[in-house]
Write a protein that binds this DNA or RNA. Structure first.
Lengths: 265, 265
DNA sequence: AAGGATATGATTGTTTTTGCTTGTTGTGTC
DNA sequence: GACACAACAAGCAAAAACAATCATATCCTT
């Protein structure tokens, strides 16, 4: 049987029953378990189903049918992401730091958006100002999602609060994750002044600040300083980072996590 | 059986009966008690239930309620909207009341969701607690969208704020639109107590309250009273409304707008 | 038809899950 | 307080699920 056929049948089955085991599929589709697993992995990456241990699970009853490209979602991802594979690894590492049940904040951005994939089968309480992330996570996962109030900026897919007092201040998180256009001795940078205020507000509500920045971002400058290095607790970057820089960050009391860039295919 | 499947069944069972013993689960789910205990521990860490001696317990009344598909949300898109055509006309009439540039509030629900279509080529400032509406409007239209902060309730597609002070209070709108399961001399009804608080908060920020209710909703009762009739400014319903009722509403100083039900195909 | 890319199934070793056993803790009864 | 019994946590070993690898088969291109 062709791969396409198998995939279609697999999804049809899932349409009916919410869960399927690899074993069942293997007999029903007359393929080895290895193949079924590969199918599931592939379909999962396409966002057509959720891969779970032992088999697969439907995403949401109606969502796959209704699925349409959302807001800036595609533009968000597709175009400018050259270092996507590295960012993906960094995002994975970031999610690994979280325990189920934990309260976390995820600041909008392309790096943090990639955490979505790895959050799919987790159960966290997530506060995010990223509308796209909230949207996707609510479709695909069982995480509890909280949104700050504010205006929806379509282009960035971000919710910006213009006000002092808002929902954010009632939220308390153990960790806040954010990407950055640049991080160095001068601190953590931000390119869009609009975002700074919101980000600083979010930051206040979290115990730990975790920055996701691939090695090209290290020691890079940008327009605005968001916060000094002293506020950063953990930096996740890749193995191509200049060791001298890594040592510098560590001397600043930042825990640096390196992901192996060679793992990226 | 797959672990995920067991977890889901377990939660489903708990949904029905508030409490389950490890023993019951062991037989019902056909797994050893050790496994059940591990499941409970895991789900408890995820905040999906409360682990107690002897079994598991639902967390809170509200949390349980949320699991049930209700009134509003994406569920309403799909199935049982028989009076969809009438609702559509009503929604159209509602949008006609607005001028470009105006600030309005749209409360989540199936009736108000239909306003989407007619808002597509308008330019309003919309505050809505409906995640789905926000999502669709931001895709399709150029309206400025504002969201209240709060938790995202996936099934209803609604953002619920648990807090007193939030973004909402800085918003001022000329009109608020809402649907209702029933309206009559007793006032405007609501079926879900969870929503009441948010709706009342929204209502405070608007000058006019405009209720969308097809004729089957008139004089119908529901569980909870959201507000007295005196707070309603405009009622949009259809031509099949009992004239006596219409006169009654008008005597209560409510402007009643009737859409011609025959226009509906 | 040759060659490369891709898909598949079998095999391996590793990780995770599961049920059982044991000893401990908690609950209720007398 | 002593006892009995249920509920439990921890450790362990078997089984299931898995990822990685390799060899073979299939498809596609030239």
């Amino acid at each position: 049987m062709l791969e396409k056929q198998r995939h279609k049948l697999l999804l049809d089955i899932l349409d009916e029953q919410q869960f399927v085991s690899v074993n069942d599929l293997s007999t029903q589709l007359n393929a080895s378990e290895a193949t079924i697993r590969r199918d599931i992995t592939k379909l999962s990456k396409q966002g057509q189903l959720r891969k779970i241990r032992g088999g697969a699970e439907v995403l949401k009853v109606q969502d796959r049918r209704v699925r349409r490209p959302h807001i800036s979602g595609s533009a968000f991802l597709a175009a400018k992401e050259q270092r996507a594979d590295v960012k993906r690894l960094i995002a994975q590492e970031a999610v690994k730091l979280c325990e189920d049940g934990e309260f976390i904040i995820i600041n909008g951005g392309s790096s943090t958006y990639m955490m979505k994939e790895f959050l799919a089968d987790r159960h966290l309480n997530v506060l995010t100002n990223s509308f796209v992330l909230a949207q996707d996570l609510s479709e695909v996962s069982d995480n509890q999602i909280t949104l700050p109030g504010g205006e929806l900026y379509r282009k960035q897919g971000i919710i910006l609060s213009a006000f002092e007092n808002d929902t954010i201040q009632y939220y308390h998180a153990s960790k806040m994750f954010m990407g950055t256009p640049g991080i160095g001795e001068f601190g953590v940078m931000e390119s869009d002044p609009l975002l700074i205020q919101t980000e600083q507000k979010l930051k206040k509500q979290a115990e730990q600040l975790i920055v996701l920045a691939d090695s090209t971002k290290l020691a890079k400058r940008s327009n605005f300083i968001l916060c000094p290095l002293s506020e950063v607790d953990i930096l996740i970057t890749d193995s191509e980072a200049d060791p001298k820089l890594v040592r510098f960050f560590e001397s600043e009391d930042i825990k640096v996590i390196l992901v192996d860039v060679n793992q990226a295919t």
